[in-house]
Structures are given as C-alpha cells and as structure tokens.
Amino acid sequence: MEEELFTSGRNIPNIDPSLQIWHWPISLYLFLGGLAAGILFFAALFYLMGKEKQYPALKAAAVIPPIALSIGLLALVYDLTHPLYTWRLYTTFRIESPMSWGAWVLLITTPLSFLWLFSYYRSAFPKWESKLKLFKKFKFLEKFEKFLIANRTYMAYALVPLSIILGVYTGILLSAFNARPLWNNAILGPLFLTSGLSTGAAAIILLSRNREERHLFSKIDLALIVIEIALITHMIMGYYAGSQVQLEAMDLLVGGEFTLMFFGFVILLGLLVPAILEVIELLGYKVPVAVPAILVIIGGLIFRFIMVEAGQLTRYLY
C-alpha cells in the first residue's frame, strides 16, 4: 500500500485535490483554433491551385475563421488571471514556449483572416452589401478591396503555413507538458491538426450548395477521419507501451471516467458514424450531408474538452 497525505492542510484553489487551471475557454479555443485553421488551409490551398471558382463554399466559409478566432482569443484572455498584462506576450518571443508561438501566430493570422474575408465580401455576400451599403458610405474601401484582391496570392502563400502552425500548435500546447502524462505524447500535435482540418472540411460541407463540391469535401473529410482514427489508435498504443504514469493516464480514457465520452461521442459518433455515412453517400445513396458534418464538428469539440479535462487529472506520483 502507498498513501500520501498533505498533513499541513494544503488545499489551494484550482490545484488541490486535482488540477483545474485550464477551464472550458481553453477547450473551446483549441476547437475554434483548429476549425479556423482547417478552413483557412483549404481556402488558401484551393486558391493557389486555381480552383476557387469551382468551389464557391470556400468563399462563404471565409466568414467562419475571423469569428472563430475572435471568440477563441476572447476565451483565451478570459481564462487568464492577470489579463491586464496580456501585452507582455508581445514584448518577447520565447522559442521554447509553445504558447509564445501560438500568441504570435494568432497575432498574424487573425487580422489576415479578416482581410481574406473582406477580399471576398462583395463577391460572396452581395446580399449583405446591398443592405449595409458599406462601399457607398466609405469610398476608400473600393481601393482597399482592389489592393487585397491583387495581393490574394501572397495572403494565400502566408496562410498555408500559418494555418498548419496554428492547427499543430493547439496540440503542441498540451503535449509540451511532461508533467501531465496524458498530454505528453508527440502525436497530439498532428492529431489536433488532423481533427482541425476535418472539422474545417465539415464546416465547408455544411455551407456548400453544390453537389460536386460536397462530394469533394466529403472525400477529403473521409480521408482525414481515417487518418485521425489511425492517429488515435497510435496514441492509445503509445500509452499502453508507456510507463506507469502513462498507463494510469490511459485508464481515464479506456475503462475510466471518460470512457463513454471518448469512445461513445468522439470515436463512435464523431468519427465512425460520419465516416460510414459519408461512404454511403459517396456510393450514391441519399444521406443528408449535414448529419455527418455536424457529427464531426461536435465530436471535435467534445474531443478537446475531454483532453483538457482528463489531462489535468493525470500526474506524476512520488
């Protein structure tokens, strides 16, 4: 038997008996960051491939990243306990700190996502413009739009690597913590990137009105789901082959308190069911495409919540 007690009566808020430093805003941000990264990646990539005219939903989807990133940033700042000093992030760059990387990437990507949206504003949302009449009220917008459209290629070249860094960073942020064995595996970065790309593809499917386009993104989403299942399998295999602390971490997901959430909502409803539905749809049967897309998005959200919550329950024993 091993038993350890704090006899001096330690009961620090958010730390004892189990760590609860990062709350729902962090999970929400990790999801929104991944979603925004996914959409920006596809939008920029298809633009560079010269195929944006074939896929109009990519333009419409440009509205999601600026909103998602803004809400995500607000959530991040909301979770800080010393928020008035947030500017301190931008007086330095710490190459070893994933959060520093994330802060700088967000500082560049968020405005870029707004500019990217604005460059499509008139062509993708003519109804909004006819109501708001922004271009009539502010003459300089005409010039600004022209400038953005002329430089769209440069924006796309910047967005491809930035969106990948943003997507990977949401995972690396967690995996860099050796002290939390559930997070401390090298696969979490690629896994969160894949999940982010998959939710991004799902969001594009939801906005698409065009059958060919939906089929293409269903195929992309299907491939990403298969990769994601493979990465999750490797993650669990890694825990199985790991040390005692990793075995205990895995117990939370396999057989412990998060089992139903993880296998039921993430693996089954968030990955396997949408994959099966997408295959059926691609075979030519009628399936409402919104169903797999919504399942993928909800599954991605629940996955972030589970990882953030469960990770903080795992620790080293001494």
Binding site: L80, F177, Q312
Partner: peptide, 17 residues
C-alpha cells in the same frame, strides 16, 4: 499574464495562482 502554463508544466504542483 496568469496563463497557467507553468502550473500545468510542474510535476510537483509547486506553483499557484
């Protein structure tokens, strides 16, 4: 800034907000 990253990173739970 109170981001909590250091608290998450400490195997000894030696830090607090």
């Amino acid at each position: 800034i109170g981001c909590g990253a250091c608290i998450e990173s400490c195997p000894y739970d030696a830090r607090y907000q």
